[in-house]
Design a protein around this nucleic acid. Structure first.
Lengths: 184, 184
DNA sequence: CCCTAAATGCGACGACTGTTGCGTTAAGAT
DNA sequence: ATCTTAACGCAACAGTCGTCGCATTTAGGG
């Protein structure tokens, strides 16, 4: 039952986008009654939150390519792919997060978890001597991923995978350069 | 009449936020009839778009501090201030942009204009020899402002002015470092 | 096999949003 | 001053969203 409903949500999302996503459409497509949807998921945002959490891999961890630059490129490619997918569940939940607090909380929980897990690649880079100890992992990841999110979500302009790669390299070099500048 | 309505929109925005912003509330507060609001502004998004365009300074231009780093810091401080203001019209329009195409278009027009104007500080830096010719201004500005937007709008976490400054410095150094790396 | 409780289907209802037709008012031109 | 036109106020209306009461089904335990 849950899977049918979530599949219907995804299909509706692909066809009509977030602003065209309605409970009734999900009901008729999934064959589940309106009332049941309202009772179990409360709202459209609730459906999207469940879809997000259903798609969240509990075992997810960032790729280990052997270099900070490579790791950041891998991260940025995942971000770019998630935001340009059709339909993009991430984009939909972002949209929903501006309407209901539940979606906003689910999204911050999701990102909080992801950024926390991704921090290990910074630790690895420190161990390799690519970065100085004490680097703020969140700040570094923000430098790498922030431009990608901003371009694709807020500015609503295209960003190729190559450009996403480039921003990853900029972040890697910027923080490595900071280290070089600290040396005598 | 227009100014009273926009003032009412801003006041309602401050009290109830975007998701609590309703046409009726604006009508009673401004003393203008519902129907008139629907006819002239079409929707809540229309009101916010008008508020954004009313607040947009036609003569705006980025500060000229004499250095790329200083200029980017000034830009990031404006962004940070706009996003943490109470109420933040920018945040409200961003929220509206996920519901109606009109708001999305108005927002991209606004940012397109701002980023285009801000590009002059990159040209100045090139003239001063701080940056190599041919630097992609948009990419540089994205590196500086992207993290600020992402942190404050999507991640919904605080970012101090000092942190915004830091991201401006990172961007300045990253692109300047790229130039140094190109030199023999 | 039956009994109980939880979940679902169903129809109807109230609340809210946006629209329309019509009368009234205000502004500008001759 | 009068006429014309556009904008506004007003009330009623339709469509949609979310909720509620009740009947039906399903699952689990005695």
């Amino acid at each position: 039952m849950r899977s049918e409903v979530l599949a219907a949500v995804e299909a509706e999302l692909a066809e009509h986008g977030y602003d065209g996503l309605t409970i009734d459409a999900v009901a008729v497509r999934s064959g589940v009654h309106r009332t049941t949807l309202y009772r179990r998921w409360k709202s459209v945002s609730g459906l999207l939150v469940d879809l997000l959490e259903a798609g969240a891999d509990d075992a997810w961890e960032p790729a280990d390519t052997g270099s900070l630059e490579g790791d950041l490129i891998a991260v940025n490619r995942e971000v770019q792919a998630a935001l340009t997918a059709r339909p993009s569940v991430t984009q939909a939940v972002i949209a929903a997060s501006f309407r209901t607090p539940e979606a906003a909380e689910a999204l911050t929980r999701f990102w909080d978890d992801r950024y926390r897990r991704t921090a290990v690649l910074v630790a690895r880079a420190v161990d390799r001597g690519e970065l100085p100890a004490g680097v703020d992992a969140h700040q570094l990841l923000l430098t790498a991923t922030g431009p990608v999110y901003h371009q694709l979500v807020l500015l609503r302009q295209p960003m190729s995978r190559a450009q996403a790669d480039h921003h990853a390299r900029i972040a890697a070099k910027a923080f490595a350069a900071a280290r070089a500048a600290d040396l005598p």
